[in-house]
Amino acid sequence: MKWVWHAVAILTLITVSCSDNDNPMLPNDPLKEYIRSHLPLQKGTMAYKLAEDLSLHLPALDPDQNPVVVKTDYFTITTNDIIATAVKDEGYRANRLRNYSPRQLRDKLLIIANNLTDKKLLLRAAIESGMQLEQNQLDSLLTIRYERYGGEQKYRKFLADRGIDFDYVKQQIHVGLLIREHLREIYRERVKITEEDLQKAYQEDRLATVRHILLSTEGKSEAEKQQIYRKMQEILKRARSGEDFAELARKYSEDPGSRDAGGLYKDFPRGRMVKPFEDMAFSVPVGEISDIFETQYGYHILKVIERKKETRPFEQVRDRLEQQLRRVKQEEVYQAYLQELKDQAHLEVREIPLPGEQKEKPGEVSSE
């Protein structure tokens, strides 16, 4: 699995330059409406029909019931919002959801809900901070896309052929730009790299090779997570009793990126993996197996195969070390900042029950 952290996903938008003060500013009022409003499903539309069909397998998705999945002080997100977002983001490809099992469907929709929640919280924070963009910033990114597809009309046709609305894409580019610029301000305030940090990083192990096992918990209920944890406890017991770790990974790991290789990740540097994974990879003694630890992907165990230190002179690798440290600290700041926003918003998340599961009583929610 390639561990991609959220802040990097936002910051990979191409940097664009600001021009003179005569350039008109993009209004934020439509984005404020985007945050607080719902995406209605109109009867007769593709999105409504999709929700109807999916509700045959997952009754909570009945578009006429439209239960709340996410509640904050600033907005709520309903099942209709989630389906509508899937259709707006993926166009006709959203019809692939019909091929999912109820559990796969529930997990996918909760991921969409979580991503939409994070986006709206970050967007609201950006607007509240007074962040505003110039028209040419949006135009510059659109121009790059037009050039990539051979012109504006070809790009519009590319989207239309896939059932994706151009105005929605334009809005989402605006959203992404605003969030990116806001996060840059947050990073400037909170991410500091000192000479002491660099010297410490230079002395530490630089690369790690591990085998690991993942049991996914994405979109799972608390009861399901408990069952998964108990399963991981049994796997850990077998690994520590001497069973071949690589074979256990091939048999049980749910990480498609490493399972067939016996869970192997070779010579990865600091800053490449999510923090809990990195912490274990660079702290567990070589040859030993970690305790169970959790990331946003699920429960893990890993065995450290090898670690290597830097052999080049400090000045030769100083810039690279600073870049790596900055990525790590940005991810830490991003996660902490997002949690602050969730706490301030009093975020609450409802389960989407599978068929046959106990349904929550009205108004019963679980805090994230």
Rank of each mutant, 00 (worst) to 15 (best):
A201L: 02
D205S: 02
R206F: 05
R162S: 10
L214I: 11
D167K: 13
R156P: 04
G150T: 06
I164G: 06
K220Y: 09
L183C: 04
E195Y: 06
E196I: 14
L207F: 14
L178D: 10
T194F: 01
K225Q: 14
L215E: 03
G150R: 00
K157C: 02
V191C: 06
K225T: 11
T209G: 07
Y202E: 12
R190S: 07
E222R: 15
Q233K: 15
D161L: 07
L159T: 09
S216T: 12
D197R: 07
M232K: 10
I173W: 12
E224L: 06
E204L: 08
A208C: 14
I173N: 05
Q153Y: 00
G219R: 11
R180E: 11
Y202F: 15
F158C: 03
K157V: 00
I213Y: 06
Q227P: 01
H182R: 01
R211L: 03
F158D: 09
Q199T: 01
R180P: 01
M232R: 05
L214R: 14
Q171M: 15
T217H: 07
L183Q: 06
D165F: 01
L198A: 08
I213W: 07
Y168F: 14
Y155H: 08
S221I: 04
Y155W: 12
R162E: 10
Y202L: 08
E152Y: 13
Q199E: 11
Y149T: 05
K220Q: 12
K231Q: 09
L178F: 06
I173P: 10
Y229K: 15
H212M: 07
R180H: 08
K225H: 08
A208Y: 11
E222L: 15
L198S: 05
Y187R: 11
Y149R: 09
K220L: 12
Y149H: 14
Q203A: 09
E222T: 14
L183K: 04
K157A: 11
T209N: 06
R180A: 13
G151A: 07
K170A: 09
E196F: 13
A160Q: 13
E152D: 03
